[in-house]
């Protein structure tokens, strides 16, 4: 039973044997859940353990300790993989096949009926803008096209859960925008998307929640919205020049002024005081801009703290 949880990870650990018998701890007691219908960003610097986690989930490597389930099915089983659309990092597919042939192969492994498979292949190729290249062998594709084949094969059986390892890697800005649109569309359709990335902007734009992993340990797990809100440092407020008594605002930092407006820097804790003064001295606010730490700053702060 999944109980509305798409991904349930409990104490997942992985150690690799390094050189001279040394053990490398790639993943250490990862515990987290991803509810169904959520877009989850798994953020971390290179070598943080993102791909190790995903490989454990997909049964490519066996965890040293811990367990996980995919929509109620234990990881590593055929049944668990039946419920997932998986895109590996830097994907490679049988290059002697065309995109169409490869998608048919993937669909057949998911035991899709022929007519449904034919329809889905058509739709996926069109959605990922591969229709023109459908008959060409994959070996003639560019890196971005191979990445798009990878995304197409995750969608072919319309799974409930998508596990994407660096889905935007190797794509040009148009391709990245396309992938973001696809993820947002999947979200609209109630699908769960778990994707790893080291690009904070990707997470900020499409994710509901984010987990930050550094050196194999989950360092933060929160809603993107909450992080963004907690990152508010203050506001930039413009008031109309020539109206009211601006000297009342002298205790706030004046950024610039012109004949039309005056621009103040208002700390988050003094915003109410600022608005009260505006109202009391008959001033007029024309613009308020939030000054916030973005997700990148939040991410870098965590990484730097771990490094210390």
């Amino acid at each position: 039973m999944s109980n509305g949880v798409a991904l349930d990870i409990q104490g997942l650990s992985k150690q690799f044997k390094g050189k001279r018998g040394l053990r490398v701890e790639a993943l250490c007691g990862l515990t987290m859940q991803v509810p169904q219908g959520e877009v989850f960003g798994f953020l971390g610097p290179n070598g943080a353990g993102k791909s190790t986690t995903i490989k454990c989930l997909m049964g490519l490597i066996a965890p040293t300790a811990g367990s996980a389930t995919i929509i109620g099915e234990t990881i590593g089983s055929v049944e668990s993989r039946m419920k997932v659309g998986f895109l590996p990092e830097n994907p490679a597919f049988y290059d002697y096949l065309s995109a169409e042939e490869y998608l048919q192969f993937v669909g057949r492994t998911f035991r899709m009926p022929d007519d449904l498979l034919a329809r889905r292949v058509e739709e996926s190729l069109r959605l990922l803008e591969l229709s023109d290249a459908r008959k060409r062998p994959i070996r003639s594709y560019s890196k971005g096209m191979v990445q798009r084949v990878g995304l197409a094969q995750t969608m072919i059986h319309d799974p409930e859960l998508y596990i994407l390892d660096e889905p935007m890697s190797g794509l040009d800005p148009i391709g990245r925008a396309l992938v973001k649109d696809i993820i947002l569309d999947l979200k609209k359709r109630g699908k769960t998307v778990f994707f790893s990335t080291h690009i904070t902007d990707d997470v900020e734009k499409v994710c509901d929640r984010v987990g930050v992993i550094v050196k194999g340990r989950l360092m933060a797990l929160d809603r993107v919205e909450t992080i963004m809100r907690s990152g508010i440092e203050g506001y930039v407020v413009q008031t109309k020049a020539g109206i009211g008594n601006h000297t009342a605002l002298a205790s706030f930092g004046l950024i610039r002024s012109s004949e039309v407006f005056r621009e103040y820097s208002v700390p988050a804790g003094r915003f109410n005081e600022f608005t009260a003064l505006v109202s009391h001295h008959a001033l007029e606010i024309t613009l308020i801009e939030t000054k916030r730490k973005d997700l990148e700053a939040f991410f870098l702060e965590i990484v730097e703290n771990v490094a210390r």
């Binding site: 049964g59 490519l60 049944e79 993989r81 590996p88 490679a92 597919f93 998911f110 990878g150």
Partner: peptide, 8 residues
Amino acid sequence: FSVVSLPI
């Protein structure tokens, strides 16, 4: 990576 992560 692509093949053994399919349901086979």
